[in-house]
Each structure stands twice: as structure tokens, then as C-alpha cells.
Design a protein around this nucleic acid. Structure first.
Length: 579
RNA sequence: GCGCCCGUAGCUCAAUCGGAUAGAGCGUUGGCCUCCGGAGCCAAAGGCUGCGCGUUCGAUUCGCGCCGGGCGCACCA
């Protein structure tokens, strides 16, 4: 965006209710800078043809102002001048009439530092008070429909710790996108067709027969987990040996259905325990029964992206950036897994979603290009599918790595993880790191109920505020005075200002975090808010002799609590009144 | 061999499409409760951001080449 654009955009787009106060302040400053640059050009203080995006940020240090921009340095390189001179030219023509801005400094190599009166904070805090649980939400996403698919584990066993990570990331990202004004659907794709579930049925049959006293071996590569023994046990108590009367094929189909519905139900329970509810559980089987894979093949063929070679049918995925062409129908006539997968994504787009996001495990990253190629070959825009790879999780106890081999030894399921560490710590830990980074999950640390566990730092801030209000009621304070009843000018300590600035940034944070697909930054933000609050709490006595001051500080505590509660809710971590 | 991800404080990790003196938690050291919850606050120590070149007024961030770790490279799903 150029200076001229932002100026125009500002004229065209009226300030609306769902734009945050901070965004309005930033736009106002941007607008004034753009006008100043125009004027400087007209007067010949800046050569023409210069364009630079005006980016406003909140500097870390208070002496660098409330807001700042490096636009002068960006311009300087184009006009062969230095940043400080350009900054000087901008300041010369900058109008601060009717603005929160009280002073502008030129600092360092040419930063413009803006110092504002606290009027904008007063407005921003009132906004929090008014919006309550909705604070943090904007309409920036303009109602665009996004389908977010995540976890989608095979229904052949219990969920594992990587699934738990994907679940935390996906659910949080969905919440962030919803708050940013998108319409989001959370979807779980159930792979209830294909070889893996056949193998599951065969494994269950073996367990069933074993319980009836037969010497039935598990199939090769069968599922060896204890959970199938349990299911077989239930089966025997419900059906005795009656299943043996069915034909082999009937029995297989019956067992498959039974096993899958059991596993899916278990997975759903685990996720519910985690506080996660999907909008849709999409069955691969239903897709196959509707003939979607065949239809997709036909469509690909019609569009000329299929060819035969070595008795197999290939997709020309290299035409869409894949590093080699892929088999879609094997020489034995069976489709590869790619076909129903392309069909599934086509189905998503046909359901009217504007954008698709898949969260996949690292073992699938080699698969992404061919899937995207398939979608592009069908004629959909390449960018309609976005894939986020959630990297591996390594479980650690202190310094010891917990081995996670499926064969033997210690396999930890998501259920066991939840039982050991609890939902809140799990979610918090999984969200702390960027999805792309490999994660060490310290079980000892996560289960620790002490200050060493970072999740308590944030939760404690929330509980502490609740405690202040309990105390306030006991001591006869009126705890619910709003922006119109409190004397805002009494809020002026550094710690208070710091805290309020962070709170005012929440809606922009949410949006930026959602756009960047980096929910870990939400944790970061919460930690910052909690730190600012704890600091405020230590430095500014809330309940004191000065009733007006107490009312004002109770108000600060209240809006802080609203932000913490909203952020924690988006992260899926509970915000308790006491701990 | 090719592709993807990651190398930042003792450990685990941040750093907002390239910004000012690279931050936080844990650990270490030293302070702070006659007062709203000390699961807290304040301060100190701790860094050639793996290495080298390049682009830029400016690089942890972008590009190239190495080094190290993880994961993938099927007519499996």
C-alpha cells in the first residue's frame, strides 16, 4: 500500500463500530503523515515519485513514544537523502489539529515517535467495557468462509500426542479467525474407507475369535493395541458367538462398521474432554458411496491431466509444481489414496468455502504438492488450499526423552496425556510454540502445580483479579462502576498506562495472529498482559482510602480481566475465579 | 542424493509482512508481604542470533553456499 492509497482508503472507508480504537488511532496518524508527505512534495521539500508504505507500530520503550513509524527511512533511500532530513520534512508539514497526538519526536536514524494524550486509551477502555466477551472481535475477515480441517486421525486407534498438538492449534486458530470476522467451520475427516479400516476389522475379528477360545492370529501389520481386546470383550458379552453365523464378507463389514463407530466415538470423547467440538465429522465412506472419486477422475480426464503409462493411470501433477507425476489408478485397477483426497477437497469447495486450511503432520508434507496439484488441475485457484504442517512432538520427563514407539515400550495416548497434565496445561504448552517448530513437551513441568509452570502465570492473573473483586464486595466498594462513572484522569501511573496500551492492542493482535497462522503469539500476548497486570498490582494499590482512585483502578482491573478471559477462551484454556 | 522444518541466554522458546539497546519462562544470585492471593514484584548475571558471503540506510528476519539436528522422498494410507 502506498501513501496515496492509504489516504484514499481512509476517505472511502468510514470508521465503523467493529474497527478497533487502536486501529482508528493508527489510521488517523497514517492519514496525517500521508497528507504531510503530499504537501512536502508539492512544496518541493521532497522529490516526487516517492512511495512507501506507512507502517505504524508500538515501540517497546516508552521514550520512543506511544506509536512510531520508520517511513522516513524507507523514503530516504529513494530520494537519496538521509532519514532524519526526510523525517524533518514530514514533521514540518504535519498537522496535529484535533488529534490525540501531543508531540512528535525525530529519533535515531529517522524514526517518527508520536506521543499521545491518554484520551485514546480512555476510549479504548470504554470499548472493552462495552463489548465485554466480544472485545477482540472485528469484522476484518468480512465474513469469508473458511474450512479448517485438523486432526483427522485414522479411526484405527486412540488419538496420540501429535493429534493433541494439532487439536490445540486448529481449535485456537479457528477461534482467532472467527474473532477476526471469518465464518469458520471445524472439520474432522474420518478415514472410514480403505485398507486401514479393513485391517482394523480383521484385527478385531482375530481378537473376537481369541476371546471365544480360538487360536486366531492377528493379521500381518494388524493393530496390536489393547483397545481392540477391550472392544472384542464387549462384543462377546453382547453378541456371544453369533457373529460367526454370518458369512465372511457380512461379518467383515459388520465388524468394520462396529470398530470404526467405536473408535470415532472414543476420539470424539477425547476431543470433548479437550474442550473441542467439531462442526462436521466428514465420512470418507460417504464420499466414496456417492461416487465422488470416480467423478473426480473423470473430471481430471476431461480436463486432459491424466495419461496411461506402465498399465497405470497418472496425474500430470508436474504441471502444477509437483516434482513428479503421480499414479491415481494402480495397474491392479485400484485407486490410490490421492483420488478420494482430491475429491474430498473438491467437495469442500463445492460446499461454498472460499478458503481451505488443512493442518497436517510432518509425515504428510511430501503429500501437499500433489494434493494442491490435483485441486489446481480441477480448475480451482491454487491458493484455495493452504496447508499448515504441525511439527513433531517429543515427550520429555526432565532430561529423559520418552520413547514413543508403537511396537512396545511406552506409548502415550492423548487420553493419558490429558489425565497426567490436564487440559489447560496441554493446550497452553502446545500453543506456546510455533506450529512449524519441533516441540519438546515436558511432562514433569506440565503436571507441576507451581510457579514453574507457565500456564499458572496467566491463570493466576485472572484469578487474582477475581479475588480483588471478592475483596471489594466484602469491604463495601461498588465494584461495577463503568467508564461513565469513574474519573479516568486518576489512572496515570506508568504501570497502568503500560497495561492499558496492551489491552487496547488486543483486537489488532488477534487479527494479525490469525492472519499469520501463529497461535503461539496469542500465548505470548497473554503472558505480556499478565506480566503488565502483576506489575500494576504490585505498584498500584487497588482498594484504598481514596474511593475515586479505587473505583478507577477497579475499572482497569475489570477490563484487564475481560481481555484475559477472552484470550484464554480463544486458546481453549480455562479462566478460573480462584486457584 | 533430493525436498520440507528447525539451529537465538545453561534449558525450552519469543522477537508482529526488514527497524531503535535481541526478549520471556525455567534455572542461578540478591532484595520485597503490620496492607487487595508471594502460583507475585524488583534487580543482577548470562548472547559473535550455527558459520560465511550477498541485498539494504538498517538483517534474528530476505537471497546464495556450507555445518549440525528432525521429518519425508511408494503403483502405502
Amino acid at each position: 500500500m502506498t501513501a496515496a492509497d492509504s489516504c484514499c482508503e481512509r476517505r472511502c472507508a468510514p470508521v465503523d463500530e467493529s474497527s478497533s480504537i487502536m486501529n482508528q488511532v493508527k489510521n488517523d496518524i497514517k492519514d496525517r503523515i500521508a497528507k504531510a508527505i503530499d504537501k512536502a512534495k508539492q512544496k518541493g521539500d521532497l522529490p516526487g515519485y516517492v512511495e512507501a508504505e506507512i507502517k505504524i507500530h508500538m515501540p517497546a520503550k516508552p521514550e520512543q513514544g506511544d506509536f512510531a513509524t520508520g517511513v522516513a527511512m524507507a523514503l530516504a533511500s529513494e530520494v537519496k537523502s538521509d532519514g532524519r532530513s526526510v523525517a524533518g520534512a514530514i514533521v514540518r508539514y504535519l498537522s496535529l489539529e484535533d488529534s490525540w497526538v501531543q508531540r512528535v519526536d525525530i529519533a535515531g536514524p529517522g524514526f517518527l515517535n508520536f506521543f499521545l494524550s491518554t484520551g485514546w486509551l480512555e476510549k479504548a477502555m470504554a470499548d472493552i467495557w462495552k463489548k465485554g466477551p466480544l472485545y477482540g472481535s472485528t469484522d476484518y475477515g468480512a465474513g469469508k468462509k473458511i474450512l479448517l480441517e485438523f486432526v483427522s486421525a485414522n479411526p484405527t486407534g486412540p488419538l496420540n500426542v501429535v493429534n493433541a498438538r494439532a487439536a490445540a492449534i486448529g481449535d485456537c486458530l479457528a477461534s482467532l479467525l472467527e474473532a477476526s470476522g471469518y465464518q469458520v467451520a471445524r472439520e474432522f475427516y474420518v478415514n472410514d474407507a480403505g485398507h486401514q479400516v479393513d485391517l482394523l476389522a480383521q484385527s478385531l475379528e482375530a481378537r473376537y475369535r481369541q476371546q471365544l477360545g480360538e487360536n486366531a492370529p492377528l493379521p500381518e501389520n494388524g493393530y496390536r493395541g489393547e483397545y481392540l481386546v477391550d472392544i472384542a470383550g464387549e462384543l462377546v458379552s453382547q453378541k456371544a458367538d453369533s457373529l460367526l453365523e454370518l458369512s465372511g464378507l457380512e461379518r467383515h463389514e459388520w465388524l468394520k462398521k462396529y470398530a470404526v463407530s467405536h473408535m470415532v466415538a472414543k476420539q470424539r470423547d477425547t476431543l470433548l474432554e479437550y474442550g473441542l467440538q467439531y462442526d462436521t465429522w466428514f465420512s470418507e465412506k460417504s464420499l466414496r458411496e456417492a461416487g465422488a472419486p470416480e467423478a473426480t477422475l473423470e473430471q481430471l480426464s476431461e480436463r486432459g491431466f491424466l495419461y496411461e503409462k506402465d498399465g497405470a493411470l497418472w496425474l500430470k501433477s508436474t504441471e502444477f509444481g509437483d516434482d513428479k507425476d503421480r499414479v491415481v489408478v494402480k495397474s491392479d485397477g485400484e485407486m490410490t489414496y490421492l483420488v478420494p483426497d482430491i475429491a474430498y477437497h473438491k467437495n469442500k469447495l463445492e460446499r461454498g468455502f472460499d478458503h481451505l486450511i488443512d493442518i497436517l503432520g510432518p509425515d504428510h508434507h511430501g503429500y501437499v504438492d500433489r494434493l494442491k496439484a490435483g485441486i489446481a488441475a480441477l480448475g480451482y485457484p491454487e491458493e484455495s488450499l493452504e496447508v499448515i504442517i504441525a511439527q513433531t512432538v517429543r515427550l520429555v520427563r526432565g532430561n529423559q526423552v520418552v520413547k514413543m514407539s508403537k511396537r512396545g515400550g511406552e506409548f502415550i495416548s492423548m487420553d493419558e496425556l490429558l489425565e497426567e497434565a490436564g487440559k489447560d496445561a496441554c493446550r497452553f504448552f502446545f500453543l506456546m510454540r510455533a506450529p512449524s517448530s519441533h516441540l519438546d513437551f515436558d511432562l514433569d513441568l506440565a503436571r507441576l502445580q507451581s510457579n514453574e509452570n507457565p500456564v499458572y502465570y496467566v491463570q493466576y492473573a485472572h484469578a487474582r483479579i477475581a479475588s480483588i473483586f471478592r475483596q471489594a464486595r466484602q469491604e463495601g466498594f461498588v465494584p461495577a462502576l463503568g467508564p461513565n462513572e469513574v474519573e479516568f484522569s486518576l489512572i496515570r501511573e506508568t504501570a497502568e498506562i503500560q497495561l492499558m496500551k496492551l489491552l487496547a492492542a488486543f483486537p489488532e493482535e488477534v487479527y494479525e495472529i490469525a492472519e499469520a497462522r501463529e497461535p503461539n503469539r496469542l500465548i505470548n500476548y497473554m503472558m505480556n498482559v499478565a506480566a503488565a497486570f502483576h506489575s500494576f498490582y504490585t505498584q498500584c494499590r487497588v482498594l484504598g482510602d481514596d474511593k475515586d482512585l479505587s473505583a478507577a483502578r477497579l475499572y482497569v482491573a475489570r477490563v484487564c480481566q475481560i481481555v484475559l478471559a477472552n484470550a484464554l477462551r480463544m486458546a481453549g484454556v480455562s479462566a478460573s475465579e480462584s486457584m
